[in-house]
């Protein structure tokens, strides 16, 4: 249907507003991170930096620097935690998804799985805290890996199930007829076919784990296990006088998920839409 000139102007105006609303806060975060410290304390603000200052990034990437040490160890912990949790979640989720898809495991059970992670984490936190505390497992990356794996598991099962459902069942029947065991069929036939789905599931799981804050806040207390979100909260709560430092940490923590999200946009959006709408 044709648009009038007024309608066209309106559409572009709305698009512009949306772009500003979406990109504005992020852009400002990036600008802050490279502004001169004095620019950021002018009243009213100096929006365009008088000079570019990349020193904060240099400091963040320098192990010898205090904030660099904090940032880099948190980065390492985040990568290990999110990566480890994703790997374990997938390892456990794929057989379970196969059971739901091909062995007629009850959907009620899958819903129960999903319900457990929809519950507020506050419901689980204290017994977990007490248990980890008495086992001497607080402030350890491995603890977060296990908790996150459980948190990622139901959604990973759900996504993998939906993807295995659409694989041709005859191919698996053929393998069965040829005498292959279920483990063999899973490894040699199903996994190669489900590779794109596994990649998508892994990516979404990684992003969710990367974002997690609550468990990490409770279970970690120093450089050896604190993840990026906790470290950033520390930075923000500390007596930092240069807001640019906080901004630069924020930018660094956003880069990995933002790059993934933009690069695999179609993948992620379809996964998100399917994951949130189909029950």
């Amino acid at each position: 249907m044709r648009r009038s000139l007024l309608q066209s102007v309106l559409v572009y105006l709305c698009a512009l507003m949306l772009a500003v609303f979406t990109a504005g806060p992020l852009l400002w975060l990036a600008v802050m991170s490279v502004s001169m410290p004095t620019d950021l304390t002018e009243v009213p603000l100096r929006w365009i930096p008088s000079d570019l200052d990349f020193s904060r990034y240099g400091a963040l990437l320098d192990v010898a620097d205090g904030s660099g040490r904090h940032f880099l160890s948190a980065l390492r912990n985040s990568i290990l935690t999110a990566g480890g949790a994703t790997a374990i979640a997938l390892l456990v989720a794929i057989p379970a998804a196969y059971s739901f898809s091909r062995r007629k495991a009850s959907m009620v059970l899958l819903f129960a799985f999903l319900a457990t992670i929809m519950m507020p984490p506050i419901t689980y936190i204290l017994p977990l805290y007490s248990a980890f505390s008495s086992l001497g497992l607080l402030n350890k990356t491995v603890t977060l890996v296990i908790v996150y794996a459980a948190m990622l598991l139901p959604f990973a099962i759900w996504l993998m199930k939906a993807n295995i459902d659409v694989l041709p069942v005859e191919v698996e029947q053929a393998a069965l007829m040829e005498g292959a065991s279920t483990a063999f069929t899973l490894r040699k036939v199903v996994l190669p076919l489900a590779l794109p789905a596994i990649a998508a599931t892994a990516m979404l799981s990684f992003l969710v784990a990367w974002d997690e804050f609550f468990y990490a806040l409770i279970f970690t207390n120093d450089l050896s296990a604190k993840t990026l979100p906790v470290a950033i909260a520390d930075f923000a709560a500390g007596r930092v006088t240069d807001y640019g430092v906080i901004a630069s940490v924020g930018v660094m923590a956003t880069l990995p998920p933002a790059i993934l999200a933009i690069a695999f946009q179609k993948f992620i959006v379809s996964g998100l839409v399917a994951g949130s709408v189909k029950g």
């Binding site: 005859e170 191919v171 029947q173 053929a174 069965l176 007829m177 005498g179 036939v189």
Partner: peptide, 19 residues
């Protein structure tokens, strides 16, 4: 079990292993 029947099957969709 299918594998223990000493039979082989050709499927309508061929069911070849794509990989």
């Amino acid at each position: 079990e299918p594998a223990d029947r000493d039979i082989a099957m050709v499927f309508q969709s061929y069911a070849l292993f794509p990989n």
